[in-house]
Nucleic acid binder design. Structure first.
Lengths: 220, 220
DNA sequence: GAACCGTGTATACAGGTGTTTACTTACCTC
DNA sequence: GAGGTAAGTAAACACCTGTATACACGGTTC
């Protein structure tokens, strides 16, 4: 982290700085893109904004990534190589654990956490853009669904449970973080570090547990 | 319905047609806007596109509505004056009924149905746009939440249940209709008129019923 | 028949978009 | 120190956006 340098950084370390070096600026651009697109979505923030955040020119962004869409693909595809970690959750506690994570948006040691949460916002804010859509579909199908589906057993029924869980999580993010609609708009409570509303956690926990436990019929 | 007339309509009825008249063209523009924004979102479709669909010039759109944002406000605010109708649902069947509606996107006699479904798509596709956001927040808080909260009893706990139900519904729409992610991408099955996957209906029904039935603590 | 008003159009404006080209500048190596 | 090479920039491209202004047409009413 901490790569979001401003364009004037000629202070610390060896003299090789105003030319930051290939990998460093590439990473800076990528980080700036992720941050900007998490806050505002694919259509809303242009290359000049991202470049400016990275302390760079728009032309350079395209020299490194070729295209706005390609930059987006890299920005969302690299969020977390191995997002697992939910394998440890006690099946009986699945609902409460995921409800807490979903509603607080806070870092939770047991599960994907912060990075994942940001990725969800980036996804939701960029979902309407035609250029971003195929990228996001790939991301959902190849990166976020598989671990969830694996947790539920890996078969077709598991994928349905996973889709339902993900749907609730995404919907909550839309209402709470994007539209900032009550009673889900807990953005400030997140900043204040307080816990989420207990009743909300109870409802969400019950729903998520249902998704995990409800018996299903035909296997194919 | 059936207002989406093309720009050449000089055929039926009295000679007063090429000048369609104030209310008629206003309605045509509104209908075109709703249709276009349901398909593609606020940022994606411009005034010229909407005007063209209504058989009209972009300037005229602004003459009638003043501003793109104002047009959007009218387009989403007028979806259905009294969207109730879910008061009749047997509390024990709430989950299954709403699951069927949510997953099929089809017209269901008992509940808001098609129009509501379109409004959800319009909402989700336009949610990232800063201009549309306050409009959408108002729409959710004043139009879609109240009937649901009322169904659950109208108190604070009811609003939490309603928010959870709405979150699941919106999340399912995102995965199924916007990102077209399996196993929720049932857009084609909707066109074919077939029923939704029974397992999916079962999972969603269980989750929705949990949202309705789970006992909650403290009343304030 | 002529003036008039409302409905609709054509055109231009100012600004922003992603992308490309040609150029400068700093570093590294001989 | 000179030359080469890679990092970075400036400027321009063609296009599209929402909005405002000035103009033309059609119908109605004196």
């Amino acid at each position: 982290m901490r790569i979001t340098q401003q364009h004037e950084d000629t202070s610390a370390e060896p003299p090789r700085r105003s030319r930051a070096g290939r990998e460093a600026t590439r990473a800076a651009i990528l980080a700036a893109a992720r941050q900007a697109w998490t806050e505002h979505g694919f259509d809303e923030v242009g290359l000049r904004e991202i470049a400016s955040r990275a302390g760079v020119t728009a032309a350079l962004v395209n020299r490194y990534f070729g295209t706005k869409e390609a930059l987006f693909r890299e920005a969302i595809g690299t969020e977390d190589p191995s997002p697992a970690g939910l394998a440890d959750i006690d099946p009986g506690q699945f609902g409460r654990v995921l409800a807490a994570v979903t509603l607080s948006g806070e870092h939770h040691a047991t599960v994907q956490a912060r990075t994942e949460h940001d990725a969800h916002l980036m996804l939701l804010r960029s979902a309407p853009s035609p250029a971003a859509q195929p990228v996001l579909r790939d991301y959902v199908e190849n990166t976020v669904m598989p671990p969830l589906a694996h947790y539920f057993g890996g078969d077709d029924q598991a994928r349905k449970r996973a889709a339902a869980v993900l749907a609730l999580s995404l919907g909550a993010s839309i209402l709470g973080h994007i539209l900032r609609t009550e009673p889900l708009a807990q953005a400030e409570s997140e900043a204040a570090g307080s816990e989420a509303d207990p009743d909300l956690v109870t409802v969400f926990a019950a729903m998520l547990q249902s998704a995990a436990d409800t018996p299903l019929g035909e296997s194919r």
